[in-house]
Design a protein around this nucleic acid. Structure first.
Length: 281
DNA sequence: ATGACGGTGTGGCACCGA
């Protein structure tokens, strides 16, 4: 089971790249952020034709917008954070129903925050706290959960091309990193850091100043899994390939692979006797 | 220090992203 997250910065513009990427990386579930379109403009047919008939879409005009596109059925679709009034379409969650069991998928486009001290920054902190409180309730459910998307936060200095020069600037502030740690404290793990990774691994690069070519980037797109899934996480990688496209998104997709849970067989078959005489003495 | 790049909107630029 492969699940991906990708901020595509306008689905209208990036649809051909999304379809092309899915052909090369046929993940089971693709979580998209920054659709920048309303639901009536969502290219459902194209995704169905690509093998993703189950799409939970939460859009709005101009900004934001998120979607979960899946090969498997999606149930109990929820929009935004329960108990938090929000004009902006930033979260869509659904229960992924597979033969190997259910998984709650929470796809989020976190608030950017612009600049510490700004009105948008305080909105970011309120949004983060609301998310934490809501997920604390969600985590009481025994089913495994995955929280993924564009977090707009570097978890620590390894996630930034210039941690010293950018200290306490947006995506690097103590408040944001504390909010990230508070999410982990709910019982979630940063899937990317479960594995050895190439140094200077980033998921976003500014369009300007040849930032991608110079690898001046940030890792702000994250995959967090509930602890019960830890033993099943096989890999977590950033796919830089689509960032090399002609008119790319500024973000690269992140792909996590999760193996099915090993179940204890309640009726194990008795061991068959060896056909080789005398093998067992 | 600033702007650079790219997307959207009903525009002649401003706003937003990160």
């Amino acid at each position: 089971m492969k699940i991906a997250t990708w901020n595509i910065n306008s689905l209208s513009v990036r649809l051909p790249q999304v379809i092309e990427w899915l052909a090369a990386q046929p993940v089971d579930v693709l979580c998209l952020q920054e659709l920048k379109l309303t639901e009536d403009k969502f290219p459902l047919q194209a995704l169905q034709d690509a093998g993703y008939p189950h799409c939970a879409v939460f859009g709005q005009k101009t900004y934001n917008g998120v979607a979960i596109c899946s090969r498997h059925r999606l149930e109990d679709v929820q929009r935004n954070i329960a108990g938090f009034e929000d004009e902006q379409a930033r979260v869509v969650s659904a229960t992924l129903s597979t033969p190997d069991g259910d998984l709650r998928v929470v796809n989020a486009y976190f608030v950017n925050g612009q600049e510490p001290g700004s009105e948008k920054f305080s909105y970011k902190l309120r949004w983060l706290e609301a998310l934490r409180l809501w997920l604390a309730e969600e985590m009481k459910n025994p089913q495994p959960l995955i929280l993924l998307g564009d977090f707009n936060i570097t978890a620590d200095d390894r996630d930034s091309y210039d941690p010293e020069g950018l200290r306490e600037t947006i995506h690097h502030t103590t408040e944001e990193r504390e909010a990230f740690r508070d999410l982990l404290a709910l019982g979630l793990l940063d899937a990317f850091r479960l594995f050895e990774q190439p140094p200077k691994s980033y998921s976003w690069w500014d369009y300007r100043d040849l930032a991608f070519r110079r690898n001046r980037g940030l890792r702000i797109d994250h995959v967090l899994v509930s602890q019960s899934l830890q033993a099943q996480v096989r890999s977590c990688v950033i796919d830089k390939q689509p960032r090399r496209n002609e008119r790319p998104s500024d973000h690269a997709p992140v792909v996590v692979e999760i193996s099915p849970a090993k179940r204890i067989d309640p009726n194990p078959k008795p061991l068959t006797p060896s056909p080789i005489p005398g093998f067992f003495g």
